[in-house]
Design a protein around this nucleic acid. Sequence first.
RNA 1: GCGUCGGUGGCGGAGUGGUCAAUCGCGGCGGACUGUAAAUCCGCUGACUUUAUGUCUACGUUGGUUCAAAUCCAACCCGGCGCA
Length: 404
Amino acid sequence: MSSIKFTINKKINDRLGRAGVLSTPHGDIQTPAFVTVGTKATVKAMTMEQVADTGAQVVLANTYHLYLQPGEEILKKAGKLHKFMNWNGPTMTDSGGFQAFSLGAAFGEHVSKIAKGEDGRIAKQEKGEEVLSALAKVTEDGVTFKSHIDGSKHHFTPERSMEIQHNIGADMIFAFDECTSPQASYEYQKEAMGRTHRWAKRSLARHRELLKENGEKRALLGIVQGGRHEDLRKESARIISEMDFDGFGIGGSFDKEDMHTAVGWVNSILPEDKPRHLLGIGEPIDFFGGIENGVDLFDCVAPTRMARNGTIHTKNGRINVLNAKYVNDFTPIDSDCTCYTCQNYTKAYLSHLFRAKEMLASTLASIHNLHFTIKLVDDIRRSILDENFEEFKKEFLGRYYGNQ
RNA sequence: GCGUCGGUGGCGGAGUGGUCAAUCGCGGCGGACUGUAAAUCCGCUGACUUUAUGUCUACGUUGGUUCAAAUCCAACCCGGCGCA
């Protein structure tokens, strides 16, 4: 029996989208929901009380980072992730599979998992070139990482990822997968996808053994890959669906233009009664496209990373508070926003903090962006329940992107 | 007053006869960021325009040496330090 339970309360007419509740051992998540990223068991620049105040329901940490520092034994001794980081709500961990990409093909390159326009350069991995700077190397057995902290070598296998994730102790964990570059060829995407499927099976097997051994409650989500190719995405969705996962992640690379179409291919195949998590996606426009195509959970570093770099969301689009025009702007970021930052501080003050390189700048901006993002997904959820998703989508997108 | 060192772009500071509108850092202006290698990274930053292997004005001031000076010489102005 699964340790999580997913209930659908309402669907969008003629679409894959739905609003529901995902019950975990540490509480319920109203879906669709944005999952706050706290990679190293901390949401950068914020205390967990501040994270909770933004409306966050669930936090996701990373296996690779916590394995390197402070190490799984410390997490275990601390009483697992929840206790260690002082977060009593639901948690997730990513498997380390994304680092096969970010420390591998993407290392030292200006490549994101989202390809924009005709970004069709050939990836190094398919030219057979050893990338001198790469810190990750993929084989059938797993991924060998060179620590970005001290250069030491570490080998991750699906089995090892499961062991570490059980030691970290999140409520929902992910199968070990390979995230590929959008620049990779069809052949490479196919090869990597096959490997991810074999790793999914191994992850599931080891996860089951560990559940028996430790008697704990933990859900495992399998990950669909296949890049931007329809046949691969559908094949992956079919194969991963056939395995007995508690839920699903949709990972890998996309073209910005047809990301949501690709998500739709996958979600029309995945079983309807289990939750789906679109990995690493989180710009405002993406939530609408993802949700109407059947996504229940999103996680993304964008809100907090952009905040630390001075880019802030407003209902009228994003702004860079470092721009000269905000030096003398004594109004809040967003007059309607109910977050702590908007209730108490002005753009001029944030501008000053960023220019002076004061760390409070990161904190205040993160509070706002996180609140904005979480609330946006929550508003979409409400619009599904109120049966006015389309109106809300049109209104929000018109205002947010219309002024750009 | 004498001696001595020094005066370079918004600031700090390279350069010590030609390839110098002048390394670099800071500051300024703008951009990027999508399962966090990230409080990071990338442009631009004398003026003008047809934004170019383009024109012009620039290295305290004035004059000189030289084919050629930010770089050498002289005087002057200003600043630091030392001695009176």
